[in-house]
Design a protein around this nucleic acid. Structure first.
Length: 114
DNA sequence: TGTATGACCCTGA
DNA sequence: CTCAGGGCCATAC
């Protein structure tokens, strides 16, 4: 998986598959995309993603449920807004873990079924 | 070739 | 809870 184009496509594919209301960390996305230890690359890939794709980028958050954009920034507010629109709670730059719905341990199955 | 810079992550204090 | 330090990997100059 050294071809940037292909690696980026893999990231996009995973992000696109994140169910509404669910979230994945950058590291998890990288791992799911077959790119372990390349969390930073996920960020690069998201930034480079054509808006045309309409990727649910807001469902990708930092490890531990943190929104990584600077507090108060345009992007931070937008991400919080979209997550809340999907029923998630956001306090400051923290995304509250889901009490109902798929748990982290079940997310794999959730993501890969079909 | 070398350095700086991230939409990152983990651990330890 | 915050903070620093080290690791990580691709990009830009």
């Amino acid at each position: 998986m050294n071809d940037p184009q292909q690696a980026m496509a893999s990231v996009w594919r995973i992000v696109r598959a994140i169910p509404r209301g669910a979230t994945l960390s950058y590291g998890e996305v990288a791992r799911q995309a077959g790119l372990p230890r390349r969390a930073r690359w996920v960020a690069v890939a998201l930034k480079a993603a054509p808006p045309k794709l309409r990727l649910p980028w807001h469902r990708v958050i930092g490890a531990g449920g943190r929104i990584l954009f600077p507090a108060g920034s345009r992007a931070q507010r937008e991400q919080a807004r979209r997550l809340r629109a999907e029923g998630r709670d956001v306090r400051g730059n923290r995304v509250i873990a889901v009490a109902r719905g798929p748990r982290a341990s079940d997310l794999d199955a959730w993501l890969w079924r079909s």
